[in-house]
Design a protein around this nucleic acid. Structure first.
Lengths: 160, 160
DNA sequence: ATAATATATGTAGTTAGCTACATATATTTG
DNA sequence: CAAATATATGTAGCTAACTACATATATTAT
C-alpha cells in the first residue's frame, strides 16, 4: 500500500484532493458526451439543466440556484447565447432584470442528452458506491459547513 | 428540506460540487493561516510539505509526488524561490535535473506552521467525521478510478 | 417626493490548475 | 559509437471559476 506524502498528510490537503478529483471527472465527462456525438461542455451543465427544469430565470436567481458568482453565470450565458442554446429578454415588471430561457435548439440538445445522463448516473453510481459514499459525504460536509464554517471551527481550537 | 435544482440533479453535477467545496475549504484555510499571522498561501502546501518530509527532490519527482503536471509545479517553485522558501541546484550526476530543497527560511516557516496544521486537522476532522467520511470517500473513489476510468465504465453502458 | 439603500447586471482582471510545444541531456538500440 | 528514443525542464497560452468595481433601476425611509 504505497502512499505519497500528500496522501499521507491527509486532511491538510483535502482541498487539493477535491479539486484534482473534480478535474478528472469533468474531463471524463467531456469524453462521454463526445462518445455520444454530442457537442457539449460539462461546464454548461448547471446552467442548462437548471433552465431545463425551471424554464425562465433572471441572471442572479440562476446564479444563486447553481451556487455560482453572477459574473461566472454571465460568461456562461454569453457562450450559450452564441451557441443559440439560450436567449434572453427584459423583465417588463422589473426592468433591471434579464430573463433567460432555453431556445428550441437548447431544448432539443437537452433532450438528446437525457440518455447520456443515464449513462453518467450509472457510471458515477458505480464509482461512488463505495463504503463511504462520496455524494452523501459531500452533502454532509456542506451541511456541517453551513452550520459552522471551517474558520469558526478552527477558531475554537485557536482560543484554547 | 429545500433543495436547488443542481443538488437535485445529484450525480450529474458531482464535478461542480467537488470544485465548489474545494474552493470553500481553501478560502477558509487561507483565513486560518492569517488568524495565526502566517503569510502563507494554501496552494503552496503540497510542494512545501513534500519538501519538508523528503528534503531534496527533482522537479518531476516532486510533481509526481504531489500529483501535479510539472508546469504547475514549476510555477509554484518560481513563487517559492522568490519568497526565498526554497532554493535549487543542479544534479551533478544527471545534469538535466534541478534539485529543489527548503531554505532555512522555508524550514522555519514550516515549523511555525505545525501548530496550525493541528488546528486544521482538528477542524477538518470535525467536518468530515460524518456518517460518510469525505477523505475515505475520496480515497475510495480515486482507487475505483485508478482501476477503471469513468469513461471506461460509461462505455460499458453505451455498448448495451 | 427625495434621499439613502438595496438589488441586478455588467466589465476587468485574477487564480490555480492544465495542455501543447520546445529544447537539452541521458539512455538504449542497431 | 551514432541514431533513435526517452526523460527533465521550461515557456506560452488556455480554462473555469473567482473578486472588485461600476452603473442602472427599484425599494424603503424620512
Amino acid at each position: 500500500m504505497e502512499q505519497n506524502v500528500i496522501d499521507a498528510s491527509g486532511l491538510l490537503a483535502i482541498s487539493t484532493r477535491l479539486q484534482r478529483l473534480s478535474d478528472q471527472i469533468r474531463k471524463d465527462g467531456l469524453l462521454i458526451y463526445k462518445a455520444f456525438g454530442i457537442d457539449f461542455q460539462p461546464k454548461w451543465f448547471p446552467v442548462l439543466y437548471t433552465l431545463y427544469k425551471k424554464s425562465t430565470m433572471s441572471v442572479v436567481s440562476l446564479s444563486d440556484e447553481i451556487g455560482y458568482a453572477h459574473p461566472s453565470t454571465i460568461s456562461l450565458l454569453k457562450e450559450l447565447e452564441k451557441e443559440k442554446f439560450i436567449r434572453s429578454k427584459k423583465d417588463k415588471v422589473d426592468t433591471r432584470k434579464r430573463l433567460v430561457e432555453l431556445t428550441e435548439k437548447g431544448t432539443t440538445l437537452l433532450s438528446t442528452m437525457e440518455p447520456v445522463w443515464e449513462v453518467i448516473i450509472k457510471a458515477t453510481a458505480e464509482i461512488t458506491n463505495t463504503e463511504n459514499n462520496l455524494m452523501k459525504a459531500i452533502n454532509e460536509v456542506e451541511s456541517s459547513l453551513k452550520e459552522k464554517s471551517f474558520l469558526q471551527r478552527a477558531e475554537v481550537y485557536i482560543k484554547k
